[in-house]
Amino acid sequence: MSKITRRRFLAGSAAGGAALMLTPAQKALAAGSFEGFPEGMGVLVDLTRCVGCRTCEAACNEEQHLPEPSKPFDDFSVFDEIHHGQKRRTTDKAYTIVNRYDVKDTEEPLYRKIQCNHCNEPACLTSCFVNAYKKTPEGAVIYNSKVCVGCRNCMIACPFHIPAYSYHSVLNPVIKKCIFCYDTRLKEGKPPACVESCPQQVMTFGKRKDLMKIAHERIKKNPDTYVNHVYGEKEVGGTGWFYLSNAPFEEAGFDTDLPKKPIIDNVKDFLAIVPMVLTIWPALFTGFHLLATKGKSHGHGDDHSHDEQEGH
């Protein structure tokens, strides 16, 4: 601890001022209205096609060399699993999950695949204080676990409850989440393993902007089938993966109260005051000091001695 405190002290006195002044400037760059890389890839997920076979889960497990699952991937009893009243979610051992939802007015259940949505302006990225996350031009949100300190702020920030943490690792616990198969596939222009494995083509892989047109066209051609909404087109500033559904999205477990603006927009008001405080406060309070102590002994000079009683 003493070592760190010392180092912080040194770094703080040397680089502190500079880095603090840098904060607003960097922020301004990240701000604006970034709508994703123009050539970024995405995936259109059409829930009406999913039959809940869990092949994507198996494909992800194999591709990402994830640990053995607790149940076989063709065991459908997982759809009945409830933890804390919640259906399954992504974990450090499973980057994608299919859940089953019972939807009103239809006999057929609805299946929903959950994985990282690869936001255009990811909350995880903007909340990370070691800049571990990166949105690649190909559209993936990846992260460098070598710098992960383990503060888990990204898990707080993610509006989709996606990043998980390998809590049980002693020496190298890190964030774990879907990376769009960036290292092994996307980088080479190939679709992620789950997309390729899907027997129903629930997922269509392509450029985000092309897929968005297709999504709207599907709604237009089948107005009776689809809900007239592409979940992820606007949500939290737009996501790389987006959804079509035949049932209201909230019935399939989607959070439909999410803001349309990126999460970071909430924080901008606060970040804007940082440079103000940094520049105005010193002058203001030094001024107060001079006013308040005018005519009195100037603050505590060298003459100050605790042996004297300071009567007032």
Binding site: R49, G189, K190, Q201, T204, F205, G206
Partner: peptide, 28 residues
């Protein structure tokens, strides 16, 4: 999902630009 199919998407003027692939066509 072959590279040439992925990187030469169906042009916009083609109406049938959203056909399921063979595997999906069967299953669907």
């Amino acid at each position: 999902l072959s590279p040439e199919n992925l990187h030469n998407p169906t042009p916009d003027f083609v109406y049938h630009n959203d056909q399921p692939n063979l595997k999906a066509a069967y299953h669907l």
